[in-house]
Deep mutational scan, measured.
Amino acid sequence: MTEYKLVVVGAGGVGKSALTIQLIQNHFVDEYDPTIEDSYRKQVVIDGETCLLDILDTAGQEEYSAMRDQYMRTGEGFLCVFAINNTKSFEDIHHYREQIKRVKDSEDVPMVLVGNKCDLPSRTVDTKQAQDLARSYGIPFIETSAKTRQGVDDAFYTLVREIRKHKEKMSKDGKKKKKKSKTKCVIM
């Protein structure tokens, strides 16, 4: 069974824990209790493949930012979460993405942009803004509501699919490099 290491990042209060708990335990946590770091595991079937999701729910508070490099190193894919009623959390996505790329030393890291709290009427981040940002990053965008469960499975499952595509691409690139290195030079 394939294991996928997913990391949920975003500013404090955007609903990272609520999304994760909704996926794992099928219930909505409405009281806000700032996370330092929590880890969850769940076995699911995605596109006919049974897999184990190892999900790291991270601290959004700035005082825990020193811990970010460590979990970013171990993560295979990242859910970059903002709240649709919090423009600052949307603007912060850029910083999370840049930090992930720096730590992973790669421009090509599996990510999904997630606009959470889409059940709320007080939207300050337009869907088109988020779609445009995701398009500019070359990553999928999904709106979710941890409260109603809308888009929750889709967000995590899409990230797994992005990781699969990335692994497939990397193995193809690896095979191309191996083929090239088999060419021999004969000096007579």
Rank of each mutant, 00 (worst) to 15 (best):
T2E: 15
T2G: 15
T2S: 14
E3M: 10
Y4C: 12
Y4S: 13
K5V: 04
K5D: 08
L6C: 10
L6N: 01
L6E: 00
V7Y: 07
V8Y: 01
V8F: 04
V8A: 06
V9E: 00
V9W: 03
V9A: 08
G10P: 03
G10D: 00
G10K: 02
G10E: 00
A11M: 13
A11L: 13
G12N: 08
G12V: 08
G13R: 10
G13W: 10
K16G: 06
K16V: 02
K16P: 04
S17T: 05
S17Y: 00
A18V: 09
A18L: 01
A18Y: 01
A18H: 04
L19A: 15
L19Q: 13
L19C: 13
T20L: 07
T20F: 01
I21D: 04
I21F: 07
I21Q: 06
I21Y: 15
Q22R: 11
Q22P: 01
L23C: 13
L23R: 14
I24V: 08
I24E: 05
Q25V: 15
Q25G: 15
Q25W: 08
N26I: 06
N26H: 12
N26L: 07
N26G: 13
H27T: 15
F28K: 00
V29K: 02
V29G: 05
D30S: 08
D30Y: 08
E31N: 06
E31K: 04
E31A: 07
Y32E: 05
Y32H: 13
Y32Q: 04
Y32F: 04
D33E: 05
D33Q: 04
D33K: 01
P34N: 00
T35S: 03
T35M: 04
T35G: 02
D38Q: 01
D38K: 01
D38R: 03
S39E: 08
S39I: 05
S39N: 12
Y40C: 00
Y40R: 01
K42P: 07
K42W: 07
K42T: 09
Q43M: 08
Q43S: 11
Q43G: 12
Q43N: 12
Q43I: 08
V44N: 13
V44T: 11
V44G: 12
V44P: 09
V45I: 11
V45M: 10
I46H: 10
I46S: 11
I46K: 09
D47G: 11
G48H: 11
G48D: 10
E49T: 13
T50V: 10
T50S: 11
C51A: 09
C51V: 14
C51W: 12
C51I: 15
L52T: 15
L52V: 15
L52F: 13
L53S: 12
L53P: 06
L53Q: 07
L53G: 09
L53C: 14
D54W: 06
D54P: 14
I55S: 06
I55E: 03
I55F: 14
L56W: 08
L56M: 08
A59Y: 02
A59K: 01
A59M: 02
A59E: 02
G60C: 04
Q61C: 12
Q61W: 04
E62P: 11
E62M: 06
E62R: 06
E62A: 08
E63F: 03
E63A: 05
E63I: 04
Y64L: 05
Y64R: 05
Y64T: 05
Y64V: 05
Y64D: 04
